[in-house]
Design a protein around this nucleic acid. Structure first.
Lengths: 209, 209, 209, 209
DNA sequence: TATGAATGAGGCTTCATTCAT
DNA sequence: CATGAATGAAGCCTCATTCAT
């Protein structure tokens, strides 16, 4: 049975496109749920219910819960990174402007669209060993984005940092927790909170006049 | 009978002291495991095994897994906070010195002694509602320690911050992730990593000359 | 998904009819066992074994042991009452004839078909509170059958009773114990025992010439 | 260790008398609880708690829960029977008067003092096989009391019955359920209910003028 | 493809029982 | 005698997984 390639590269036939779309739906639902409650606390029944299908159907697309989990993270990570990569404000301007844009966008996505899914990257503790590797890879690519900007700022003398790696870790950790702090906030208050976070994190690369 | 009071005030008789000690053993083991893998991913079997007893025995001391979880967090949080409160270097000197001392000690405890337990405070997502309240309380007391120093520094003009609340959140989030980054580090490398983290986080309150 | 509605109104599709049949099988087995040994003394393992399935399967149809218990009683009670309601001999003739017919049929069902299940109605002591209400309702409907005949007999002067309610209670209690006395009896002896019981209970409404 | 004779004949030494008294306390508590909730639903913890001792202590007096159960029933049955045997009104007068006195007293004990314990005799279904035998014996002796009076009444022509055995069964069954009907009744209402029951059951031996 | 059904392992919890002190 | 502690089997329940249709 031609099953379980899951996240293939390019769907070709109409039927495969449909399959690809279905997979995306599943992954989206799964990512949301895993993010909301954590991997262990989500059952396939939960995922199936959100999609209005039966548990069994999921196995047509994914070989196991673990496989679904891995793929969900992967999809999520890729989409996220792509959005940051394609953010216009992050591609031009001074390193400071670009970094702030990245920080704001990243936090906004976290808080607005995947209010919980960020925990997935942050807390690989509860994931099976297999997935941990995958997650680290994804984070690598993700971090690369920020790293390039920071290093460029350092190179141009615009930034001054204690240690690039540590700074990036702090940024990531802080943004990942944003959905938790911001729980319950909305509208303007939320925007302001995001701004405050970005401003605060910019302090980590600050170069005083 | 005399079961399930768990975290009583002060044990009196010899027998009660013994009981208290046993409870502490259990709580330590539980806190470690919950911290390592998350609440949902830890079974009572796991806890029991680490203590080399049978599952059933745990129920002699705790009425349920939830009760054990709550107590584990509570104990851990209290001990942690106490240690920070009693840290000599955190009680005298300039706000900057005291803050750095707190940051280093907090991170050291996290990395060295409870390499995993910090996640408990950080990720309340997956905890039953009951516990969430408790965790928030504990964090409040914990955060208060840092907050006082930061606010004092701001008052004296020694610190300059974007926003006290946000700064504290970032500090906490960052330190909580330290055990994950530091996984595998040891000896001098570990000390240096902790130093780097403290230095980096000090940037958040920096007052330029 | 389509789980746990258990005792729906009328099955429609073929698949739902099949589900309904399965549910009935389970309920029958459960009612028998609960009746034989009492609610608390029966494990789902017992029920499953009698059906030659695994414990877990039962949860596909019933959300809990309590739910199964409630449904078992409900089904049993309804079926029982229906059979009495539709008994030809209980719908025509003098009250005395009809009452004796009811007594005999009721006892026969108890002894022959649900040799044990009667205890379910009789001993609500050990049932969770929820079920107690349900049981009382069922008994109400059930008792109504007998009550109508007795009251009619009293109205026509054919019967003379001390107190209708008390008489009904005695009848019910006595018939419910019949399976216990009759344990081991068979064939003619059993028929005679049932006759004797009916005759004896008729004494409770006797009107002397 | 000289344990587990449990219900010995005559205690001799002071120490054995004390032991005997303790045993009686335990048996009383146990009988009450078993009667209230049924054998399976009562834990030794429950029994111990009512006596304000620890579970373990019970094993000094009884070898097992089953042994305790058997002994509890035995004690209860014996006491009950003795009280009926010694009832003045049941030892003199016409069979009718004596029978009515027995019925009333029996029901009164059931409802007033052991509001639930009667079920123990009535529903041996849920008891381990061992106990069933014992219970049947006890019931035999118990029934003998009623039987003698009924048979005497029949012999003198004062009573007319369909069948002595059946009549006795009905009486017993009906009285055993009394605590259930009477649940919630009190004072005069309770007395009246008991009277009604006795009057109703007297119908079973009625000899019309 | 999808579903309804079933399975079996594992998790939480209770409880009769044992035993050192 | 009595207790505190521990055990292990058994019970309820969940859930990932499989499979016939």
């Amino acid at each position: 049975m031609g099953t379980h390639q899951a996240v293939g590269d390019e769907p070709v036939s109409r039927i495969e496109r449909k399959r690809g779309r279905r997979i995306q739906e599943i992954l989206t639902a799964a990512a949301e749920l895993f993010g909301e409650r954590g991997y262990a606390a989500v059952s396939l029944e939960d995922v199936a219910e959100r999609l209005d299908v039966t548990k069994g159907s999921l196995y047509y697309y994914f070989a196991s819960k673990d496989a679904l989990g891995t793929a969900a993270i992967e999809t999520l990570g890729n989409e996220w990174t792509s959005r940051l990569e394609n953010l216009p404000a992050a591609r031009a301007g001074s390193p400071a402007d670009r970094l702030r844009a990245l920080l704001r966008e990243h936090t906004t996505i976290a808080v607005r669209e995947y209010p919980a899914a960020l925990g997935l990257f942050l807390v690989p503790r509860e994931w099976p060993q297999d997935q941990k590797e995958r997650i680290k890879e994804l984070r690598g690519r993700h971090d690369g984005l920020f790293r390039r900007v920071v290093e460029e700022g350092v190179a141009t003398g615009e930034f001054r940092v204690t240690d690039v790696g540590t700074v990036l870790q702090c940024m990531h950790a802080s943004m990942s927790q944003a959905p938790v702090w911001c729980e319950g906030l909305g509208g303007t208050a939320l925007d302001e909170a995001i701004d405050r976070l970005a401003d605060t994190l910019m302090m980590l690369v600050v170069r005083e006049p």
